[in-house]
Write a protein that binds this DNA or RNA. Structure first.
Lengths: 231, 231
DNA sequence: CGGTCACTTGAGCGTCCTCAACTGCGGTGG
DNA sequence: CCACCGCAGTTGAGGACGCTCAAGTGACCG
């Protein structure tokens, strides 16, 4: 029961070193600058795998544009998405030598990447870089802790409400959010089926809490009521 | 619907500086030694709170003996335990200035503790300490990622099987494990009710996969079948 | 314009939850 | 020393929430 078909073609844009720096004045940039590590750009097509579970962790990535999902699978194909990574987000950061989740591009995606070993070397001589690495991992941990509460204890409606508020915060532009992921992805993130996600969204639409301009273009009409039902 | 009654008395053993070093040749000891930070011992009674969610994170702890649960609550009292901390485990490590979960002693518990600020100061001048801090946080993150898969996608029986294997690995002595926590704690860790946990354990007992010498004293009779049902 | 795929909606079902009763063990006090 | 009490754990019956299976709709793309 594989939940995603992987595109057979792994066409990749030619790495462009010294690419113009995108407008992210973030930790990744800071680290890259501090450490003198050169960041390379790279692109992945929709549905393309970026790295697999248990593969050697050679690079650390930052999303420039597009969206990435990281997930774990059970032997029978049940999938749990741990996080969605949107422009600006760093992923693949792992002090272990192997990745613990699979990463795939949800849409056509461009990333910046640096060698993990370069980063660790930089951390070995620059405590600021080391601190940044720790902070970023801790930030992932905080998200995971919140998500465990959601997965273990929230109802379907509460989960979807939480999801909408998270996505609103992270990718809303002009009061509107354009979800890059399908209903199945949302379900696999929230520990639900795609049908349950769809029903919850329809219910919120019926209640006037949100409005669709298309299935993935959503406007939140009442964030307060959404926050209330988030428990 | 509070799931735990907190003992009103907060009797604490007088802090004993320069206490004899327990036999943990672990990261915590290494760090304490590297950084020259003095570790203090402290004891908590059964059910006593060690720190609360959103309290300032003043200390980092290591369990010497006993057991600790860390959890989050929803407004109506639903609880998600993120982890159980057993002798040797470090908890409360958080680069944020406040704790994100509540920590409580499950049984009478003794911990070593160091000031978080001392640790961070040490990390600022010693890259090995900084690396250790990162590694420990990453280890918590790995556990959380595995647990998200459990909470989002595993059946009740699979969750209990996973739990038993985890506890067997972490606290089995002479083929027997003595669980410090009650069925409700297990349920709140696995995203189940205490009744469902009890039924799953009874079923595994009926199938001869485990045996009870008392409700919390369990012998695993067939780890392979347990691992198989863990999915 | 036809086909495919994402999404929606409905009906029926199953797993786990809720509520309840009962059991057994451990601690305490008469 | 034993009876009693309280709490943890077990077990049962019934119900609800979310899943499964299925059909239908609509949008996008070739």
């Amino acid at each position: 029961m594989l939940t995603q078909t992987i595109s057979a073609t792994t066409t990749k844009v030619a790495p462009a070193c010294h690419a113009q720096t995108p407008p992210f004045a973030d930790q990744f940039s800071v680290i890259a600058r501090c450490s003198g590590v050169v960041a390379t750009e790279f692109s992945y097509k929709k549905e393309e795998e970026i790295y697999g579970e248990d593969e050697p962790a050679e690079y650390v990535y930052q999303v420039i544009r597009g969206a990435v999902r990281t997930y774990k699978l059970l032997s029978d194909g049940r999938r749990q998405i741990g996080a969605f990574h949107l422009p600006g987000d760093v992923f693949g950061l792992d002090p272990d030598s192997t990745h613990r989740l699979t990463a795939e591009a949800i849409t056509d995606t461009t990333v910046r990447l640096v060698k993990r070993r370069s980063l660790e070397a930089a951390a070995g001589s620059n405590v600021q870089v080391a601190h940044h690495l720790w902070t970023m991992t801790a930030s992932d941990l905080r998200h995971a802790e919140d998500h465990m509460l959601l997965l273990g204890r929230k109802t379907a409606l509460e989960r979807v409400a939480t999801f909408l508020l998270e996505m609103d915060r992270r990718l809303a532009k002009a009061g509107m959010m354009a979800l890059p992921m399908c209903r199945r992805d949302i379900g696999d993130y929230l520990g639900l089926t795609l049908e349950t996600v769809s029903r919850a969204l329809s219910q919120l639409n019926d209640q006037g809490i949100l409005a669709f301009s298309s299935a993935r273009q959503i406007v939140l009409r009442n964030r307060q009521r959404l926050a209330d039902m988030d428990a």
